[in-house]
Design a binder for these strands. Structure first.
Lengths: 118, 118
DNA sequence: GTATCATATCACTAGATAATGATATAAGGA
DNA sequence: TCCTTATATCATTATCTAGTGATATGATAC
């Protein structure tokens, strides 16, 4: 089944990729930080406590998938969300999460599962 | 930084997990299929073209994270979305995707990147 | 022009996770 | 009861991807 650009399969593939932008702890932390406005890479690093190269790699990923945009000013690069609907989406997830949090917290299928902190 | 249940870090972790439910090609295909109504496991298998055990494993994942619910009827198990807001969320992603599809399609950071089908 | 700061790039590795295959369970139907 | 169908479980494997460390680039300050 080679996915052609217009096929349903291809659309779902794109959607999965897009959602993967949100589905990582580090990238999500970056996106949440950017919800309050634009930040430099260093500011993002300190807020998320990610290493420099890790932050930069994730930002590249988010940039290439169109979730964030950036503009250089002097030696600083400011990043911001590319679309206000990203905030909307995160808010919707929050609302959904509110009702399902206990189940998700208890889900054993994740490597980051920590029974201890519940 | 041990994430306590109430901490911001913990909330982001839960959110990332929740979003991972959507961020896989197979699970997303299952969720999309269920947007039209409840289906048996076999029906899901044929629509998504996933193997039996793979389908079952993903359904377990979705079930445990509260994204779908199921009810057994005879020897069939019917699955459905647990919350209409899941449909809403997928629609919002569609809208966002509409504007960012070319970028995402061209993003080289994914293993499933197929330059050929663009 | 040299040192330093801010950021990007990239190969590599460790760790996470999706897919497979074998097996188990449980409900009808013959 | 035995066979088949529908689904679940689980260990193993194959694959993917996040994180690291080294290095590169480019801007400003001295």
């Amino acid at each position: 089944m080679p996915a052609t650009p217009s096929s349903v399969a291809f659309q779902i593939k794109l959607k999965a990729r897009f959602l993967r932008g949100f589905a990582d702890l580090s990238r999500l932390a970056i996106l949440e930080a950017l919800c309050t406005g634009s930040l430099t890479v260093t500011e993002i690093m300190t807020r998320t406590r990610l290493s420099q190269s890790n932050t930069s790699n994730h930002l590249a990923c988010l940039r290439e998938c169109g979730l964030v945009t950036c503009c250089q000013q002097g030696r600083y690069v400011y990043y911001q969300l590319s679309d206000e609907r990203v905030v909307e989406l995160l808010a919707l997830v929050d609302a959904l999460l509110h009702d399902h949090a206990p189940q998700i917290a208890a889900c054993p299928h994740y490597a980051d599962a920590e029974r201890g902190d519940l």
